[in-house]
Structure formats: C-alpha cells, structure tokens
C-alpha cells in the first residue's frame, strides 16, 4: 500500500502527501503554542469546534474544546509541555450541546533542537467503545444471573448451588433473589451448597454469614452444605466463626436437616 502510494505519487512532493494526510485524519488534531493558543487544527477539529481554521487561530484551545474534567492548570497539554512527555487522559469534552467521552492525548511539540515550542492535541471519541464495554458488562451480569439459580428442592426448601467465586456484588444478587423466592413461596429453609466455590476466605465467609442473617430476619433458616475437608481446614485456620450458620458436609445431609426442621413444625415427625 505504502509502496503503491509512493510510486503513484512519485512526481508529487512529499509535502502534498503530508498535507493530504493531515487534512484527512478523521480525528480532531490541534497544534497550540506555549500559551495554549491554537496555531493549526485539522478539518476534523474544525468540524468538532464548528469553526473555520481562520476563526480558530489564536483562540485558546480550551475555549473551543472545553472539558468539565480539567482545571486550567491540570489540562493534558499544559502537563505535556511542562514535563515534556505524552499525556493520555480519559476526559469529557464538549461538542456543540453534548458532552463526549474522549481519550485525550497531548504531546509536546519541539523544534529541531529539541526545545518545546508548543503542544499537539488529539481527541478520540470513545463513546462507542464505552457503550460496547457497558454492553459487555451487562452481558457478564446476565451470565452471572444465569449461573446462580434458586431451586425448589423440596416442599418449603430452596437450594442455591453456588459455583465460582463469591464477591459482594454476586452475594447481593444471590441474596436478593433468594429472599424474594423465600417470601413468594413461603419457604422455610434455604440450603446453600458451596461445593463449587473454590476458595472460602474471610470475605466469602462474611458474605455467607450475612446471607444467613437475612434469611433469619425473614423467618427462615440457612443450611450451608458441600463443605469439603479442605474448606473446613481453611475455615478453622482463618479463625472464621460460622457458628451462626448450620453446616453439613453434603447436600443430602443438608436436605435431611431441612426436612427435619419443616416436619418438626408441622408436627408430622
């Protein structure tokens, strides 16, 4: 491609190629002097600022590209010129009436002796990228949602098989789902099976204890099952106090315990 270009334009001066390229860079590009006054900007920048190049020259760059995220001194271009380095920041920049999320890159502009004589600014609109990220995040949430079902194990007994790590967000979701089901179905016992939880640390244990307190406040009981020897060891070694939760080694023992509670209250034991 480059080769073709250079052969095609061999008769033209490289200056023309440079100016063609400069004018067609699709992202706004601004050159400023040391006082942050605009000395050049490309057509994309003119379009962003809704100004002709003539009108823009001599104007302070921050008045054409205002951002609520920067103080006057803390602007990327001032930082780039002051410390002679490239600065990339994720900031909002105003375009017409809207605020646009951007990756704002500023670099020092130096003369042939290496002395800083101004700055370069590049603005990349990352709205689409952020939207894609938030969609991906939402997708992750949906997968998470699917990964923690609340099952009806037996009459008045619900079961949550937990698989994977348990962070506070997930605990929150599982807890909310479990409590809503508990209320809807007037269930009495929730069995939480942690066979699929690889590591139980103090934080995870605290989440489980909180879940159990919530179930108790609503009038149910929580039984923790699927405790492997390794998990039991960790719990004791970390000094975690699980005495407020009823625990069992296997799911079937937990179910049996749950059925005892339910039957006892029905007087059908």
């Amino acid at each position: 491609m480059i080769e073709k270009c250079s052969t095609l334009e061999a008769t033209e001066s490289s200056e023309l190629l440079k100016s063609l390229a400069m004018n067609q860079i699709p992202m706004p590009f601004v050159v400023v002097d040391k006082a942050s006054k605009i000395t050049y900007m490309n057509p994309a920048a003119c379009k962003w600022a809704r100004k002709d190049l003539k009108e823009a020259i001599g104007v302070m760059c921050f008045s054409l590209f205002p951002s609520p995220d920067c103080t006057l001194e803390g602007r990327p271009v001032s930082e780039a010129m002051k410390y002679d380095r490239t600065v990339i920041k994720q900031i909002r920049v105003q375009r017409g009436n809207e605020m646009v999320q951007t990756d704002f890159t500023a670099a020092p502009l130096k003369d042939d002796k290496g002395k800083v004589i101004g700055g370069l600014e590049f603005v990349v609109d990352i709205t689409d990228r952020l939207d894609a990220e938030s969609r991906a995040q939402q997708l992750r949430m949906e997968i998470l949602e699917l990964s923690t079902p609340v099952l009806s194990l037996w009459d008045s007994i619900l079961c949550i098989p937990l698989i994977g790590t348990l962070d506070s967000k997930r605990t929150q979701d599982v807890m909310e789902k479990a409590l809503v089901r508990l209320a809807e179905e007037k269930a009495r016992v929730i069995v939480i099976d942690i066979t699929g939880v690889p590591v139980i640390d103090t934080m995870v244990a605290n989440h489980l204890i909180r879940m159990s307190s919530a179930v108790k406040l609503m009038g149910g009981d929580c039984i923790l099952t699927g405790i492997s020897p390794a998990t039991a060891k960790t719990i004791v070694h970390l000094g975690i106090n699980l005495s407020s939760i009823s625990t069992c080694a296997s799911l079937s023992q937990g179910l049996e315990k749950g059925m005892k509670i339910v039957n006892k209250e029905r007087g059908t034991q």
């Binding site: 809503v180 209320a183 406040l217 609503m218």
Partner: peptide, 11 residues
C-alpha cells in the same frame, strides 16, 4: 413478613 428489600436494607 419482613420484606426482602427491607431485610437487605437493614443489614
């Protein structure tokens, strides 16, 4: 009859 949302909020 404590509601789920009330329970979680209290905790």
């Amino acid at each position: 009859g404590m509601r789920p949302a009330v329970t979680i909020t209290l905790l």
